[in-house]
Design a binder for these strands. Structure first.
Length: 352
DNA sequence: AATTCGGGGAC
DNA sequence: GTCCCAGAATT
């Protein structure tokens, strides 16, 4: 059994020798730490590496982000998923400017008042940017703790979650200055050694005291979550072109799938779509059905049937109610859902 | 306690 | 195909 002191000492030494040291967000600046932590929620490092530099280039500091239109923020987030993160990020930037005078607070509790910042994210910011003695508990950490200390519980159980938090707290190193290396070490160990499948126990600094390894339960811990039921959701996309060749897009409601992004008019029933088309002077026989596509989310299987049509009505303005007529050259300026990006790219012209 | 949020990496 | 990823907010 590894003692708390032993655990933190081994982890810090291992991180300095074998951990990751060149990720672009490994800096002291709270803004960059915060941005990376939000982007990395439920998202792997390899994916974030594509988005983080563009975001920093466009919004170099929290004031620039707070002053930007939401559409610009969502445009840079498009494709990364979980768009409430981007909407909350924008809100939180305004909170930092207006509630904290433009500077991130160092206390975990104060950080947790920011939209989209929960306990673990707040702790990570406090540890990396301010050397605060706060414990994180993300997917990597849970896996490491469940194995090293043979924690066997239902991941959906509140009490078990609480026990893991208490364990994480008990393992913190005594010195504030070691908090970045310790916190990074937990993440690095989980991501590169104590992996979900085929962990590299031979390279693990905890191997000789790992209870799961001693009990031959590495493959069984942590316990798996029950897979959520995936419901199929039929959707109908209306790809409407005007005489100038512009495509009609709508900003989606803030709540729900792809909230705040721009999408072609999207309906859950065919009759709703035909009613909408009729308002644009298009009869049912004026629409051409395209082959359906599927798009899988964690808890939904979207079954999307696109319909294409043209309107001859003169649109005096680019704006039309909730809609926006955009030429192909302008699409890149708006955040579109990934499946729509893919569809428009593949369709290239032969659709119309 | 259960559900709602995306998209992709690794296998 | 499966499982899960530097989770948080809502119901």
């Amino acid at each position: 059994m590894i003692s708390p002191t032993d655990f933190s000492r081994r982890l810090i030494a291992w991180q300095r020798q074998h951990g990751r040291h060149h990720l672009p967000w490994q800096v002291r600046e709270p803004y960059r730490v915060w941005l990376s932590e939000i982007m990395l929620q439920q998202t792997q490092v390899a994916t974030v590496l594509d988005y983080y530099p563009r975001f920093i280039a466009r919004f170099p500091d929290v004031a620039a982000l707070a002053a930007a239109p939401q559409d610009d923020v969502l445009n840079l987030w498009a494709g990364l998923g979980y768009y409430s993160r981007a909407r909350n990020l924008h809100k939180a930037a305004k909170q930092v400017v207006h509630d904290f005078g433009g500077a991130f607070p160092p206390q975990r509790q104060a950080l947790e008042t920011l939209c989209g910042v929960g306990r673990s994210t707040a702790a990570a910011i406090a540890a990396f940017a301010f050397h605060g003695r706060e414990a994180i508990l993300d997917g990597n950490v849970k896996r490491v703790l469940c194995r090293v200390f043979a924690q066997d519980g239902n991941p959906a159980d509140k009490k078990f979650e609480q026990a893991l938090w208490a364990l994480a707290e008990s393992l913190l190193p005594p010195e504030n200055e070691n908090m970045p290396a310790y916190t990074q070490g937990l993440m690095d160990l989980g991501a590169t050694v104590c992996k979900r499948s085929k962990p590299l126990c031979a390279q693990c600094p905890m191997a000789d005291g790992c209870l799961a390894k001693a009990q031959n339960r590495i493959a069984d811990l942590p316990r798996k979550k029950e897979a959520a039921e995936v419901k199929t959701l039929p959707l109908y996309w209306l790809l409407l072109r005007n005489r100038k060749g512009a495509l009609l897009l709508e900003k989606r409601p803030q709540k729900g799938i792809w909230g705040g992004l721009y999408c072609v008019p999207c309906f859950e029933s065919l009759s709703d779509m035909h009613r909408f088309a009729a308002q644009h002077g298009i009869a049912s026989d004026g629409l051409e059905e395209a082959p359906a596509l599927t798009h899988r989310l964690t808890h939904r299987l979207l079954l999307i049937t696109p319909f294409a049509g043209r309107t001859d009505r003169p649109s005096e303005s680019r704006h039309e109610g909730n809609g926006l007529w955009l030429l192909e050259s302008e699409w890149a300026d708006y955040g579109l859902p990934k499946p729509l990006q893919n569809y428009l790219r593949r369709a290239q012209g032969d659709l119309f």
